[in-house]
Each structure stands twice: as C-alpha cells, then as structure tokens.
Lab assay of single mutants.
Amino acid sequence: GPREVTMKKGDILTLLNSTNKDWWKVEVNDRQGFVPAAYVKKLDSGTGKELVLALYDYQ
C-alpha cells in the first residue's frame, strides 16, 4: 500500500501538494504520504519551502 505518514500534534511537515482540498501530500523524515487537510495548518516559513503544522495526531 501507500507509504503512510504519521504525525503528532505540533509536528512541522513539508507540504508537497495541496491541490486536493481534502488530502494534502506531505513529507516528514524522508517519508511521503497524504494527511487530512483539516489536520494541518499552513505556516509562513519565510523560505521557499511550504510548511504545515500538525494540529492533531494522525497515524
């Protein structure tokens, strides 16, 4: 199956793709996968990378 990404509340993840309104593709610890968009919030990183903050645990 697809590689699952797990996250804990407060984690910072790299946002790869947010074109789908329900599932965003993120990368964390060299793993890529989809997380519910409602579970993360975009951060203003000030760099080229888009980052998101995990609002809830997800696994």
Score class of each variant (00 low, 15 high):
residue 1 G to N: 13
residue 1 G to K: 12
residue 2 P to W: 15
residue 3 R to N: 14
residue 3 R to G: 14
residue 3 R to P: 11
residue 4 E to P: 15
residue 5 V to I: 15
residue 5 V to C: 06
residue 6 T to V: 15
residue 6 T to C: 12
residue 7 M to W: 06
residue 8 K to A: 08
residue 8 K to D: 03
residue 9 K to W: 03
residue 9 K to H: 04
residue 10 G to C: 04
residue 10 G to D: 05
residue 10 G to A: 03
residue 10 G to S: 02
residue 11 D to P: 00
residue 11 D to T: 05
residue 13 L to Q: 01
residue 13 L to F: 07
residue 13 L to S: 01
residue 13 L to I: 06
residue 13 L to D: 00
residue 14 T to E: 07
residue 14 T to L: 14
residue 15 L to P: 00
residue 15 L to Q: 00
residue 16 L to N: 02
residue 16 L to G: 01
residue 16 L to I: 14
residue 18 S to N: 07
residue 18 S to Q: 09
residue 20 N to K: 05
residue 21 K to F: 06
residue 21 K to Q: 10
residue 21 K to T: 09
residue 22 D to G: 07
residue 22 D to Y: 15
residue 22 D to E: 12
residue 23 W to Y: 07
residue 23 W to M: 04
residue 23 W to A: 02
residue 23 W to R: 02
residue 24 W to F: 05
residue 24 W to E: 01
residue 24 W to G: 00
residue 24 W to D: 00
residue 24 W to C: 04
residue 25 K to N: 06
residue 25 K to L: 15
residue 25 K to G: 05
residue 25 K to T: 06
residue 26 V to I: 08
residue 27 E to S: 09
residue 27 E to T: 06
residue 28 V to M: 14
residue 29 N to I: 05
residue 29 N to A: 10
residue 30 D to T: 06
residue 30 D to F: 08
residue 31 R to Y: 10
residue 31 R to G: 11
residue 32 Q to I: 15
residue 32 Q to K: 11
residue 33 G to S: 07
residue 33 G to A: 12
residue 33 G to V: 15
residue 33 G to D: 05
residue 33 G to T: 09
residue 34 F to V: 06
residue 34 F to K: 02
residue 34 F to E: 04
residue 36 P to C: 06
residue 38 A to R: 13
residue 38 A to C: 12
residue 38 A to N: 13
residue 38 A to Q: 10
residue 39 Y to F: 13
residue 39 Y to L: 11
residue 39 Y to K: 05
residue 40 V to R: 01
residue 41 K to D: 07
residue 42 K to H: 07
residue 43 L to F: 11
residue 43 L to A: 03
residue 43 L to I: 14
residue 44 D to V: 11
residue 44 D to T: 15
residue 44 D to F: 11
residue 45 S to P: 08
residue 46 G to Y: 11
residue 46 G to A: 12
residue 46 G to N: 13
residue 46 G to C: 11
residue 47 T to L: 11
residue 47 T to M: 12
residue 47 T to W: 10
residue 47 T to F: 12
residue 48 G to F: 09
residue 48 G to V: 08
residue 48 G to R: 06
residue 48 G to S: 09
residue 49 K to Q: 13
residue 49 K to F: 08
residue 50 E to Q: 15
residue 50 E to G: 09
residue 50 E to S: 13
residue 51 L to E: 09
residue 51 L to M: 11
residue 51 L to C: 08
residue 52 V to C: 10
residue 55 L to Q: 04
residue 56 Y to E: 12
residue 56 Y to R: 15
residue 57 D to V: 04
residue 58 Y to D: 01
residue 58 Y to L: 03
residue 58 Y to A: 02
residue 58 Y to F: 10
residue 59 Q to S: 15
